[in-house]
């Protein structure tokens, strides 16, 4: 029975950890939306900022990936 409770805790923890993906989604959406808004105001400057866009998205996404990683660790490694 103890093992079952530990198992259950693992699953609950993994499920909770996936909520972090929502934060990453908000962040990425924010970056992409603001980029688009800026790009529509000044389309000529947009291509030069593509690199910054991708770097920003990568940074925001990394945090979501961390929560995914924690979920995986809970599921498989704990």
């Amino acid at each position: 029975m103890e093992g079952d409770i530990a198992e259950m805790g693992k699953f609950i923890g993994a499920g909770l950890a996936t909520m972090g993906l929502g934060g990453a989604g908000i962040g990425v959406g924010h970056i992409a939306g603001n980029f688009l808004a800026g790009a529509l105001r000044n389309p000529s400057a947009a291509p030069g900022q593509m690199a910054n866009l991708f770097v920003g998205i990568a940074f925001a996404e990394a945090l979501g990936i961390f929560s995914f990683l924690i979920a995986l660790l809970l599921m498989f490694a704990v």
Binding site: A58, F59, E61, A62, L63, I65, F66, F68, L69
Partner: peptide, 8 residues
């Protein structure tokens, strides 16, 4: 983050 991003 550099490595986990790619693998993840």
């Amino acid at each position: 983050s550099h490595s986990i991003r790619l693998a993840g």
